[in-house]
């Protein structure tokens, strides 16, 4: 507060107008100016804006440019137009295989993971000992992916892993979980579902907690069975949450590749080589930055279409997506 204002209030007069409106008032100091209501928000936003330009807008444009070049990162990039895209979509013997693997993985995690998470969340939501169940089911979700990969590498070992030893005790032949090209992707899907189960259970149980208990009580009075309660009340009322989990899981699945990189390195014989992993190895092992950026953009375009469908569905379904 300026002296002038101070004096005015002290003598019981109406406070003087704000100093910057008075012509002969002393000019604001730099300090006051910076912490004024009109400048402050921009200072609060400055880290975000700087980051947004350097690590968000610039990379998006830069990646688009690289995708139009041939560049091994050691010599100068050479502009080749749309050749990278053309090669990937029409000439590359591996690209479409990785797309198929990506869809297989994303759809597989949904098919296995969503029903499992839904049923377990339903059992969990009205059970005793919430804190206990929760801590255990979330354990894999907070475990780093390298640990998950090495835990399962030992468990799924062909001859001496716990899984195949247990199957052997039951007299069943244990498959080569990570060595058989026909089975490796299924193993990756199962491990991923194991990792993500707690996350999806959490989303479902948040949705389940929103369902009014009175629906169930009314239905029980009418003599509904437990399975009727689940399929006639829970599932319909939970539809927005189920849709949300389905679509966000699908998008995550399409862009995911860390587990494949660490657990199977895309093998055996490319059976778990998803498109994002194909891009990563193309860039940092084969040093084909241009073509890898084109892979990234094609995959991104595909994911964007799915995302836009998601937004439409949610607007109609009344779910606010973040």
């Amino acid at each position: 507060m300026t002296d002038q204002q101070d004096r005015a209030t002290r003598y019981g007069q109406a406070p003087a107008p704000l100093p910057d409106l008075i012509d002969d008032a002393p000019p604001l100091t730099l300090r006051q100016r910076i912490s004024s209501k009109s400048v402050a928000p921009w200072i609060f936003l400055s880290p975000m804006l700087a980051f947004g330009v350097i690590f968000f807008l610039l990379p998006i444009i830069f990646a688009a440019y690289i995708s139009l070049t041939r560049w091994n990162s050691l010599t100068a990039p050479r502009f080749v137009g749309l050749k990278n895209y053309e090669y990937l979509l029409t000439g590359d013997p591996k690209f479409w295989g990785t797309v198929w693997n990506t869809i297989y993985f994303a759809a597989g995690t949904l098919a296995v993971g969503i029903p499992l998470a839904l049923v377990l969340a339903y059992a969990f939501t009205r059970a005793y000992g919430q804190a206990f169940w929760r801590s255990i089911y979330w354990l894999p979700m907070i475990t780093n992916v390298v640990a998950v990969a090495y835990i399962w590498k030992f468990l799924l070992d062909d001859s001496f892993g716990l899984v195949n030893m247990a199957l052997g005790k039951l007299g069943l032949p244990g498959p080569g979980w990570l060595t058989n090209p026909g089975i490796a992707m299924i193993s990756v899907i199962l491990v991923f579902v194991w990792m993500q189960l707690g996350h999806n259970m959490l989303l479902f149980s948040a949705g389940l907690a929103n369902i009014d208990e009175s629906y169930y009580e009314a239905a029980r009075l009418d003599g509904a069975s437990e399975s009727q309660l689940f399929f006639r009340i829970t599932v319909p009322l939970l539809k927005p949450t189920i849709l949300f989990v389905l679509i966000t899981n699908f998008i995550t699945g399409l862009s995911y590749f860390t587990l494949m990189l660490v657990l199977t390195e895309g093998g055996p014989v490319g059976a778990t080589n998803v498109t994002a992993l194909y891009m990563y190895k193309m860039a940092f092992e084969d040093l084909r930055m241009g073509r890898a950026s084109a892979v990234a953009y094609i995959l991104f375009a595909f994911i964007l279409v799915v995302t836009l469908i998601q937004l439409r569905v949610f607007r109609r379904g009344g779910v606010e997506a973040h």
């Binding site: 947004g52 830069f62 990563y280 995959l299 991104f300 973040h322």
Partner: peptide, 23 residues
């Protein structure tokens, strides 16, 4: 800006690996 923050979340991480490395 707020809409930008929401929209930016649609961009997957893998898209940034190569360009950010060279930036």
């Amino acid at each position: 800006l707020f809409r930008g923050v929401l929209g930016a979340q649609m961009f997957p991480f893998f898209l940034f690996i190569i360009p950010v490395f060279f930036i």
